[in-house]
Simulated scan of single mutants.
Amino acid sequence: MTGILDHTMIRVSDLEESLEWYETNLQYEEKDRYEGDGFTIVYMGPENMHEEGAYLELTHNEGGDELEVGDAWGHIAVRVPEDELQSSYDELMDNGVDDYRDPESCGNRYAFVKDPDGHEIEIVKRDFGEKWSIDHTMIRVEDADEALGYWVRKFDYVDVGRWEADSFANFFLEPEDASKEAMSLELTYNYDGREYTLGDAWGHLCIRVDDLQEDWENLMLREAPEYRDPESCDNMYAFTKDPDGHEIELIERDPDAESLFPF
């Protein structure tokens, strides 16, 4: 499998409000949309996305106006040029985004804002990638060794960076041959043994695979949890879970297809 992170999905309570927020503040555009029975899915991203760049998937369920942002879900991080952290944050403030964690409070290394549903968005300085493109998705794990082993054995991911402090550690993972514009996965582990709640506002990570059935069989050989196999998903996608219960979708992506959805 190529193993590139294709998208990260979050649930939103008011789709139109969220679409306007991401279009206005991150200059995202709607890439594709699927209207299902009682739900809507929208793929979003910057205008000029890298071929290995990750989408943001917004999902809205009818009647899903009350969403719980659990603490097992961390944030997405978006890129801005190295010298534009403060000006980019100021731009968001001018747009009416709430002041959450400004650059100064973060040592001028990064900053944070929140979207209308309380999803945290980190702003990181990068000298590559389209402005506001997704740099990484962070999730929290309760056992670092187990989580790292899962991503290495199941998906052939490699450790591309880490920060180990007195009370926590951050591990960055991605496929060995991924481009720098691809989205990374950040695992955050706190040493105090705390447990986390998933909530329903966080949806899943999605991995782009070469062959859905073949890669699924490979995952089963590697003893990944069989959550929703390809057959149960009409052979369009499949889902497994990591040791902390985070859902992971597998999908084939045809770059020449008219739609981003395999329907």
Rank of each mutant, 00 (worst) to 15 (best):
T8M: 09
M9F: 02
E16R: 07
L19C: 07
Q27Y: 10
E29H: 05
E30H: 01
H50P: 05
E51P: 07
L56P: 01
L56Y: 01
T59R: 05
E62C: 04
E68T: 13
G70A: 09
R79M: 13
R79Y: 13
Q86A: 12
Y89L: 07
D90C: 12
G96L: 14
D98H: 14
D98L: 13
D102G: 13
P103T: 00
D115T: 06
P116R: 10
D117Q: 07
G118F: 04
E122A: 15
I123T: 10
K125C: 10
W132E: 09
A144I: 14
D145G: 02
Y150L: 02
K154T: 15
D156Y: 01
V160D: 06
W163G: 08
D166P: 03
A178S: 12
E181I: 00
S184G: 07
N190L: 11
R194L: 11
R194K: 15
E195I: 05
T197D: 15
L198I: 14
W202V: 07
I207C: 00
R208A: 04
L212K: 09
L219C: 07
R222W: 04
E223K: 06
A224P: 10
A224E: 10
C233Q: 11
Y237S: 12
D244P: 04
L250V: 13
L250K: 03
I251E: 05
D254M: 13
D256V: 10
